[in-house]
Design a protein around this nucleic acid. Structure first.
Length: 266
DNA sequence: ATGGTGGTCCTACCA
């Protein structure tokens, strides 16, 4: 089973790039973030025509929004109302009655890494605390699927030194601050999650999935960050065969600032 | 220390 996660930054604007991804990689399941479309305007027929008859979408006007496109039937689970905001950052399904799948879009957190002066950063930290509690010991991660669970998404945090172009220069930059990394690690530990991409390509190899738009040339000095992740439970980690970050997508015409991350699981 | 680009939707807001 090939699973992809991609922050598409507007599904309607980039549906042709989604088609290109499908033609090139032939994924079984695609998890999207920042679809930026309210449910009544979701391009359902166009998505089905790409070969995905099973579609879960959870969106809102203008911002955020997540979707799961699948060739495998699934049962839709209720998303939690994270931070009581109702802001369409989570989709949850059970694939084939067998594998639990979560798709998250964690808040970016604004510019200033101080929860007392920046409500967006406070929101991000609260979201991480709620995720930790959700996946805490005895909780549900994989429980409904005999320990087989996958968590993907734009987590908006680059946890390792080798997940950013310069650890030293980004230590005080939102996405790589110690408090965010610590809280993300706590989420990982609570759910017994294993980073499938780093299982295949460990540090110190640098890996990035996002390059800012705010640069004339994104390849200049390769100033990227790894914000997009695929985590699996221990049962599934034994079956991870391949993991790739599709860096070339950043060079496509009118690209998203994120590229897709792909994992193959037997 | 600053400003850089791109998305939605039409006025700022978010990334």
């Amino acid at each position: 089973m090939r699973v992809a996660t991609w922050n598409i930054n507007s599904l309607r604007l980039r549906i042709d790039l989604l088609r290109r991804l499908v033609q090139q990689e032939g994924c079984d399941v695609i998890c999207l973030q920042e679809i930026k479309v309210e449910d009544g305007l979701f391009p359902l027929e166009a998505v089905k025509a790409l070969g995905y008859p099973y579609v879960r979408f959870h969106g809102m006007k203008g911002y955020n929004g997540v979707a799961i496109l699948s060739k495998i039937p699934f049962e839709v689970m209720d998303p939690r109302n994270w931070c009581l905001k109702g802001d369409a950052r989570h989709a949850h399904v059970i694939l084939g009655g067998d594998v639990e799948l979560h798709n998250f879009y964690i808040p970016a957190g604004g510019d200033i890494p101080d929860p007392d002066t920046n409500v967006k950063f406070a929101h991000k930290l609260q979201f991480l605390d709620e995720l930790k509690a959700h996946f805490a010991a005895g909780s549900k991660a994989g429980a409904s699927a005999k320990g087989k669970a996958i968590m993907v998404g734009d987590l908006n945090i680059a946890p390792l030194e080798e997940d950013v172009w310069s650890h030293k220069q980004l230590l005080n930059v939102v996405s790589h601050t110690p408090i965010e990394v610590e809280k993300l690690n706590a989420v990982q530990k609570a759910g017994k999650w294993i980073d499938a991409v780093r299982q295949i390509t460990p540090a110190p190899t640098k890996l990035f999935s996002w390059w800012s738009y705010r640069s004339a040339d994104w390849t200049q000095n390769d100033r990227g960050r790894r914000l997009d992740h695929v985590w699996v439970t221990p049962t599934l980690s034994k079956r991870v065969r391949h993991a790739t970050i599709l860096r070339d997508m950043r060079a496509w015409t009118q690209p998203s600032d994120h590229v897709a991350v792909i994992v193959d699981i037997d």
